Amino acid sequence: MSVVLQFRFDARSDTGRVRTNNEDSGFAGPYLLCVADGVGGAAAGEIASATTTYVVSARALAHPGHEPGRLLALAAREAHAQLVAGVAADPHRTGMATTLTAVLTDGVHSALAQVGDSRAYLLRAGELTQLSHDQTLVQEMLDAGRITEAEAAASPYRHVVMHAIDADEVPEPDILMLALQPGDRLLLCSDGVTDVLSAAALQMLLGLDARSMATDRIVRAALDAGSRDNVTVIVADVVDAPGIVANGQVLGAGIDLDNVVDPSAVRPLRSA
């Protein structure tokens, strides 16, 4: 039996101490990790995030072994099509949108897809690297040298996302090919975590030996630090192991299929 790259994971989504409902969704499996965060202030964020997570995970499970970057890009566009259908079916959903951060491996090649500001990090040999790049107004201003890191952290506009998966525009995710190695540890999380925890804190907590302990401590630390948002955390170790049939854990709003626009419409993509 061939040995391939896979993820061993622990994952949790918490409504938090301020919000009354969870608009985060996620999925963690041996080949796919993803977090989707319904855009704050928009209608039906839980519908957008749950539908997007459902589409991406369904694609990954239906097409094992396909080129990860291309599959994630196609899935993001299909999620957009589902949100278009969702708004057409219920105009009260107008404006719904979500972030998407996903890591997919075919066992050899791995890719990150990024839309919005949910983040992905890599811990390798004790050093933490942020893999994703926030698609926010504040990040654009920071990249252009118009504000400092300190000003960015305090900006009232730091949650204004410049790109999202919605019903208005076909998304073009940033795709980054990843050179993952056995022994790497990945963290995917919503901004309910990164709004309140520094990179140094994440590095320390992610370095805990047990994945379950790292997940629990990151969620607890975010809540104790005053996070006012939903908190979703996936901690995954990269391993070499014999190939297995993929399944996974659904998180947050994605657990309730009533939040998915049309599960029956998600069928295998012939072009994948």
Rank of each mutant, 00 (worst) to 15 (best):
residue 83 L to W: 14
residue 87 V to S: 01
residue 93 R to N: 00
residue 55 V to G: 06
residue 58 A to H: 12
residue 91 P to C: 04
residue 51 T to G: 06
residue 44 A to Q: 10
residue 66 H to P: 03
residue 57 S to R: 14
residue 91 P to Y: 08
residue 48 A to Q: 02
residue 41 G to A: 09
residue 87 V to P: 01
residue 53 T to P: 06
residue 39 V to M: 08
residue 43 A to T: 11
residue 43 A to E: 15
residue 39 V to W: 00
residue 53 T to D: 03
residue 98 T to M: 09
residue 106 D to R: 11
residue 104 L to S: 05
residue 64 P to S: 07
residue 85 A to V: 08
residue 47 I to V: 15
residue 97 A to Y: 08
residue 107 G to Y: 12
residue 53 T to F: 01
residue 59 R to V: 14
residue 60 A to D: 08
residue 77 R to G: 14
residue 68 P to N: 10
residue 38 G to D: 03
residue 65 G to H: 12
residue 92 H to M: 14
residue 49 S to W: 04
residue 86 G to K: 03
residue 60 A to H: 02
residue 55 V to K: 07
residue 83 L to K: 10
residue 70 R to S: 02
residue 83 L to M: 12
residue 65 G to C: 00
residue 71 L to S: 11
residue 67 E to Q: 14
residue 87 V to A: 00
residue 56 V to W: 04
residue 48 A to N: 08
residue 109 H to F: 10
residue 63 H to Y: 10
residue 38 G to T: 04
residue 74 L to D: 10
residue 86 G to P: 01
residue 84 V to D: 01
residue 75 A to Q: 13
residue 79 A to T: 00
residue 51 T to M: 03
residue 99 T to A: 05
residue 104 L to E: 09
residue 110 S to G: 12
residue 48 A to P: 08
residue 98 T to G: 10
residue 88 A to G: 10
residue 57 S to N: 03
residue 39 V to K: 05
residue 105 T to M: 00
residue 95 G to W: 15
residue 78 E to R: 13
residue 73 A to D: 07
residue 74 L to Y: 06
residue 44 A to M: 10
residue 53 T to H: 06
residue 107 G to V: 08
residue 98 T to C: 11
residue 111 A to Q: 04
residue 81 A to H: 15
residue 45 G to W: 01
residue 80 H to D: 06
residue 76 A to K: 08
residue 94 T to A: 14
residue 78 E to Q: 09
residue 97 A to G: 07
residue 110 S to Y: 13
residue 59 R to P: 03
residue 110 S to D: 11
residue 91 P to N: 10
residue 107 G to D: 03
residue 53 T to W: 10
residue 69 G to A: 01
residue 109 H to K: 14
residue 57 S to Q: 12
residue 91 P to E: 14
residue 105 T to D: 04
residue 41 G to D: 01
residue 89 A to W: 00
residue 103 V to K: 10
residue 108 V to G: 12
residue 47 I to S: 02
residue 62 A to I: 06
residue 96 M to D: 05
residue 84 V to E: 09
residue 74 L to K: 10
residue 71 L to Y: 13
